[in-house]
Amino acid sequence: MAKIELRNVSKRFGNTVVLENLNLTIEDGQFAVLIGPSGCGKTTVLRTIAGIGPQSSGQVLMDDQDISDLPPGKRDLAMVFQNYAIYPTMSVRDNIEYGLKNRKVPAPTRNKLIAEISEIVGIAPYLDRKPAQLSGGQRQRVALARAMVKKPKVFLMDEPLSNLDAKLRSQMRVELIELHNHLKTTFVYVTHDQVEAMSMADRIILLNNGVIQQEANPREIYTNPCNKFTAQFIGAPQMNILPLPGSDMSFGFRPEKVTLTEQAPDAFLKKKARIITREMLGSETLYQLRFDKQSIMVKSLSDVFLPGTDVYFSLRKEDILLFKRDENRLYPQEDGYGQALAAAGRV
């Protein structure tokens, strides 16, 4: 069990700065997900914690102890790599056992641990196989077992599910959540898939260009994004953002908050628009609407509207988010909020 803290961590590769003065705390027992577009530095953060790509400057602390100069093998953490990094020349058992042997764990304890863990992740029947004889899902479990068997204080996972097919991925997601509930260990999980982040995380850390954009629980980050980037990164289809008439600010709203009607409704914001496209998703329908040379996405439960026809779309006051010129949120308690909101209603 451990708390992880990064203090003023910077990382440069030659002249490119990947992270600059990053500060981050991950609480003990938390399932923290690092998410962001590719190249945002999320994997670098993970590798800095592991000690396999040492930071250029700054400190890494585990339970308030500075571990910056500790070699990776001594940090008491385990990592699951994106392509699993299973040793292809060793059997499954040897793969799991390798780290224990290097720690000089006595053989009886090793065997007990291997039996226990392989039972939990369901690879007991394959212990004597070579990795090449395993399926993708089985390899994933071996990588997991190899990490678990060390009983680390922290689990680091670098996009561990990205090489699995969709069905297996959703199954493994559930299993990882259960595993976390069972172990109650700190998990640091890197992904670019927001579904993974939303479904598994206690806390989402959204990174862009090496800077933390927002740190919050999934619900908070979805409903209350603190800037335009977060608002548009989380959620699919992404949040509609339109310029605010008569100012350099903008306002946004989620596609599922829009109501479509044939007649003009009585609402805070209402506007006539033309339906351009319609995508049936099954339970919901996605429409692309156009008005005044602007286009928005709408997610609706109703599938009766046809492309080429005109409809009214409307929004409630509380579903509108305002963004300042510097792309940060304009919150209700701030100056000028009421005025800006009123402008949005007049679109």
Partner: peptide, 11 residues
């Protein structure tokens, strides 16, 4: 990654 993994395994 294989070597990094081994380093994490204290090799």
């Amino acid at each position: 990654e294989l070597i990094e993994s081994a380093r994490l395994d204290n090799a």
